[in-house]
Design a protein around this nucleic acid. Structure first.
Length: 271
DNA sequence: CTCCGATCCTGATGGC
DNA sequence: TGCCATCAGGATCGGA
């Protein structure tokens, strides 16, 4: 479910409610996520002050005094702050209690997410091979062009490769390609430098706009404050097969590419 | 190396 | 109404 804008929305929603507070209790109701929740998590976190919440790619980094809790929301995860005593719903797997009205609740029906503990200051191995942050200074058309060189993979799954650029998932890959006027099935290696410049700009623009709207809620995503995101109404092509393109009126096309649904406008994305 | 398909899991949806 | 197939915002793994 969550791509960079949804993870960043989660981070920004949690931060003012939790940073500076101490963990007073930890409750793990289900530890079978993509990897098991560490058995000693409660003992590790109890009494520790949360110093910061950061984001790298689609990971959330909860910085504590003796290490970092690494979180990932997978396809269906969400985190929000609830009051102590709020009714526990199905798939509310983990609570971190920071106070009476400050319980961080992790919810994830499909359990593709992660909660892992990394002691000390070293970055977690899962973060090691990640590419540049799309909204950071070291991502641009030149980087994209260099990465794409010689590659036959379609540009859409190429954009979703975290070694190329992080944070771009299935929704925003289609949206960025629409904004750049590039067909999703085009081989990455055939992109020109100007194509890559437009594409990098489009990735930044669409992610930035989505962050500003609090992300995209298709089904049940909520940010750290429990509110849905409002970018869905601004999606140009994702989920709009057969509907008229908002720019030119042509019917939006869809096909499966790299096992993922892919959407584009045949007229606005000529090649 | 690159690329593709299968896989983990549960829930929603649509066809019959 | 029930049953079944398909699809879903991610990421990893193995084989070609």
């Amino acid at each position: 479910m969550p791509e960079l804008p949804e993870v960043e929305t989660t981070r920004a929603g949690l931060e003012p409610l939790l940073v500076g507070r101490r963990v007073t209790a930890v409750s793990v109701r289900e530890r079978r996520l993509r990897q098991p929740v560490p058995a000693r998590l409660a003992a590790t976190l109890d009494g520790q002050r949360l110093r910061a919440i950061e984001r790298r790619a689609k990971y959330l980094l909860f910085r504590f005094e003796t290490g970092t809790l690494l979180g990932h929301l997978g396809m269906s995860g969400s985190m929000r702050v609830v009051a102590r005593g709020e009714e526990v719903r199905k798939h509310d797997h983990v609570d971190l209690d920071f106070g009476a009205r400050r319980v961080l609740r992790y919810h994830d029906p499909r359990r593709f997410g992660l909660l892992l503990w990394q002691r000390g200051d070293a970055p977690h191995p899962l973060l090691h091979a990640l590419g540049p942050e799309p909204l950071g200074a070291d991502f641009d058309g030149a980087v994209l062009h260099a990465q794409a060189r010689g590659r036959k993979i379609a540009v859409k799954p190429f954009l979703m490769d975290a070694k190329v650029v992080v944070g771009v998932g299935n929704i925003y890959a289609s949206e960025a390609l629409f904004r750049a006027g590039i067909r999703p099935g085009r081989a990455a290696g055939r992109l020109t430098r100007p194509d890559c410049d437009r594409l990098a700009d489009a990735v930044r623009a669409v992610l930035g706009a989505a962050v500003a709207r609090g992300g995209t809620t298709l089904r049940d995503f909520v940010g750290g404050d429990g509110e849905p995101g409002y970018f869905a109404q601004e999606l140009a092509v994702y989920g709009r097969e057969g509907a008229p393109c908002r720019t030119c009126g042509s019917a939006v096309q869809a096909r499966v590419l790299g096992q993922r649904s892919t959407f584009w406008c045949p007229r606005c994305q000529p090649r």
